[in-house]
């Protein structure tokens, strides 16, 4: 038997499913979320990341959670040749995503160049980072997935049970697997996926993540914007795929690849296949493409 609990977090939804000990598991999940939020949120003035942004140009000690989040974000940038770049903070703000999503208002579109992840110097051994002046970090792409990985691992190892943690559709599973696997419904919007799935897949271990250009959209200077910035242009990525769902060994890697796929556009299928990452891509017009072993048998076109 699995126990499922759901609650709002970070403007989206957290879903926790465990094979045992749901009360203790939820407590662990909330503790991980609090740690990551306090370290990595760019919307909290008291977060470690916000404080880091006020001390640019010199080496600053950072706590273990932010240090890990930075290391994960820089690794994602390196392994995608900069397609997933944490230094998009100013560019994301420039196209309008400068506050909690619910409060975004229309305004002029003034794109900002992305400084590039190479400019961030992290000494993971000493727990120090140097952020050059003018560089703003947005760890959203990888920090959420990191939180899902950390929580699933902690719950499984500390409570000796199977765990699925989903944060806005970024899914990590660890430990004991229920009969038939952990079943994940897929859709453009994670909130409607279970009730109206476009497909359902079963996973047994690792991570699954979906990036989409259909959610968190807004208007800027009369043009539709979404939250995935192409670091090469500083603008919202061209919409070739409206959603990209990727399976990987961890939620961080799945999220990294899904974001990279949106940015890559037409080159995404080949890139994903080269990396051996099973993926489901839905084009802007709703055609579904299965890549690298993603199950396609009962897939259907999305309206």
């Amino acid at each position: 038997m699995t126990h499922v609990v759901e609650f709002p977090v970070w403007g989206t939804t957290a879903v926790l499913a465990v094979t045992d000990r749901p009360v203790e598991a939820e407590r662990l999940l909330r503790a991980v979320l609090d740690d990551v939020d306090l370290a990595c949120s760019r919307f909290r003035a008291d977060s470690e990341l916000s404080r880091l942004h006020t001390t640019t140009g010199r080496a600053v000690p950072v706590g273990p959670v932010l240090a890990e989040a930075l290391a994960v974000a820089l690794r994602a940038a390196r392994l995608t040749d900069g397609l997933v770049d944490p230094t998009v903070g100013a560019a994301v703000r420039a196209i309008g995503y400068d506050r909690d999503f619910a409060s975004i208002v229309d305004g002029p579109l003034v794109p900002r160049a992305v400084p590039g992840w190479h400019r961030v110097l992290l000494d993971a051994e000493r727990g120090e980072v140097v952020l050059p002046r003018g560089v703003e970090l947005d760890l959203g792409a990888t920090a959420k997935a990191l939180a899902a990985d950390r929580a699933a691992r902690a719950i499984s190892s500390m409570l000796d049970c199977g765990a699925l943690v989903s944060l806005g559709g970024d899914v990590a599973v660890e430990g004991e697997v229920p009969p038939g696997g952990w079943r994940v419904a897929l859709a453009d919007d994670h909130r409607t996926a279970v009730a109206a799935p476009q497909a359902v897949v079963a996973v047994r271990r690792g991570g699954l993540a979906t990036s989409s250009t259909t959610q968190r959209t807004w208007q800027r200077a009369g043009r539709a914007q979404h939250h995935i910035v192409d670091p090469r242009t500083g603008l919202a990525a061209e919409v070739v795929w409206r959603t990209a769902t990727v399976a990987a060994a961890t939620c961080v890697d799945a999220n990294t690849a899904a974001t990279a796929a949106i940015v890559l556009g037409h080159d995404a299928p080949e890139w994903l296949a080269e990396h051996g990452l099973p993926a489901r891509l839905v084009s802007a017009s709703g055609e579904v493409l299965a890549v690298a072993g993603w199950p396609a048998e009962r897939e259907r076109q999305v309206a």
């Binding site: 879903v15 499913a17 699925l164 806005g168 079943r183 994940v184 919007d189 994670h190 250009t213 968190r216």
Partner: peptide
């Protein structure tokens, strides 16, 4: 069968 959770844009 029924899904434990959903994955999609957020």
């Amino acid at each position: 069968g029924s899904a434990h959770t959903g994955s999609g844009g957020s």
